[in-house]
């Protein structure tokens, strides 16, 4: 399918551009369809394009040497990924995988330079987008380096665990995120860490505390 101006308008990189400018940019953009589970980019490989999600969602993640996955973000329609390497000429900083069927718009590095030269407004928009990405990453660094989110989630689970004296309210990821003062993505990650450490087990609609003492120790770190 041809690249659509309407979809370009919804991308923050192109905010404030008039229809003629969007039409000229459209010529430099290519469309790519990706199937669920397909890996779009691999960390540390040479980068030649940045991508915008126009439908579906993409998971951007890093993988440790022992295969542990760290999700950096989920990219939703209108948002971009792989911005950094096309600007600094380095390799891909993370891997990207489609979490469902996805349609992407891509711009090759050389074409992006042409767009930036011809449309100064785009440069300002890019600064804004990259600044927002830095805010998100700084918040993630804070969560990971101080480990306090996992401890807070452990504490929440201990507080909400049913001890047989009466019904306790059920908890959603959103509620846990609000209570722990973090993003929903961090809750999934924290629960996975607690499961890996043997303190809990996730089973259907239950979070089963399998080692209360271990969970208490984590809560107190």
């Amino acid at each position: 399918m041809a690249v659509q101006t309407e979809l370009l308008k919804a991308i923050p990189y192109f905010t404030g551009l008039n229809p003629e400018e969007l039409d000229s940019i459209k010529e430099l953009i290519f469309e790519k369809e990706v199937e669920r589970g397909e890996v779009i980019l691999l960390e540390d490989e040479p980068a030649d394009a940045l991508y915008f999600v126009t439908s579906g969602a993409v998971k951007v993640f890093k993988t440790s040497s022992d295969g542990k996955e760290q999700i950096l973000s989920f990219i939703r329609p209108g948002e971009s990924f792989n911005d950094v390497p096309v600007f600094d000429s380095g390799t891909n900083i993370a891997s990207a995988q489609a979490v469902g069927p996805v349609v992407l718009y891509g711009i090759r590095k050389n074409d992006l330079e042409v767009i930036l030269k011809n449309h100064p407004k785009v440069s300002l928009n890019v600064s804004r987008v990259l600044s927002q990405q830095i805010r998100g990453l700084v918040s993630l660094v804070e969560d990971l380096s101080f480990r306090h989110v996992i401890a807070r989630v452990a504490k929440i689970l201990l507080e909400y665990a049913s001890d047989g004296t009466g019904p306790k309210p059920r908890l959603t990821h959103q509620e846990m995120a609000a209570m722990a003062g973090t993003a929903r993505e961090m809750i999934g990650r924290s629960l996975k860490s607690l499961e890996d450490e043997g303190a809990i087990r996730l089973h259907r609609h239950r979070i089963v505390i399998t080692d209360k003492e271990a969970l208490r120790e984590i809560a107190e770190t």
Partner: peptide
């Protein structure tokens, strides 16, 4: 998947989906 993955809750941009969990001690 034998566990509630909660991916739908995580991806929803408007917070319209929630997956409520019971927290129980084994």
């Amino acid at each position: 998947c034998n566990r509630w993955c909660a991916q739908c809750e995580m991806i929803c941009p408007t917070g319209a989906i929630t997956i409520p969990f019971d927290v129980v001690i084994e």
